[in-house]
């Protein structure tokens, strides 16, 4: 048992779950594609926090390795996503996801 000045891993995981839930609700709530990309960032951060908390709890470097992978995935996702935002603005002159319905989805 550690000295009393500790934070249980569960609390860090609760914070991670809260962040993930906020990102999920933001993704479902907003229709502006910029805000949807921001919500995706919040969700990725929640996942990263869960990995770091688990790595700290078990003293294992694998969690931090996964954080590095999440970082590179987020960088690639944001660059492609913002390129799509620019194309969307050029082609349909709107950032609303409901206007991008050419596929009749």
């Amino acid at each position: 048992m550690m000295p009393e000045a500790t934070v249980p891993m569960e609390h860090a995981l609760i914070v991670a779950a809260l962040l993930f839930g906020i990102g999920l609700f933001g993704l479902m709530l907003r229709r502006n594609i910029i805000f949807m990309l921001m919500a995706l960032e919040v969700m990725l951060n929640g996942a990263a926090l869960a990995f770091i908390a688990a790595a700290a709890h078990w003293g294992n470097p694998d969690g931090q390795v996964m954080f590095l992978f999440i970082l590179s995935i987020a960088a690639a996702e944001v660059s492609v996503g913002l390129g799509l935002v620019l194309q969307m603005r050029r082609q349909i002159r709107s950032l609303d996801m409901n206007d991008a319905s050419q596929l009749r989805g």
Partner: peptide, 16 residues
């Protein structure tokens, strides 16, 4: 004091 044995960057690099 939050973690007894923090994971150092060296261990992360060796694993990576």
């Amino acid at each position: 004091p939050l973690v007894s044995d923090p994971v150092l960057p060296k261990a992360v690099a060796l694993s990576l």
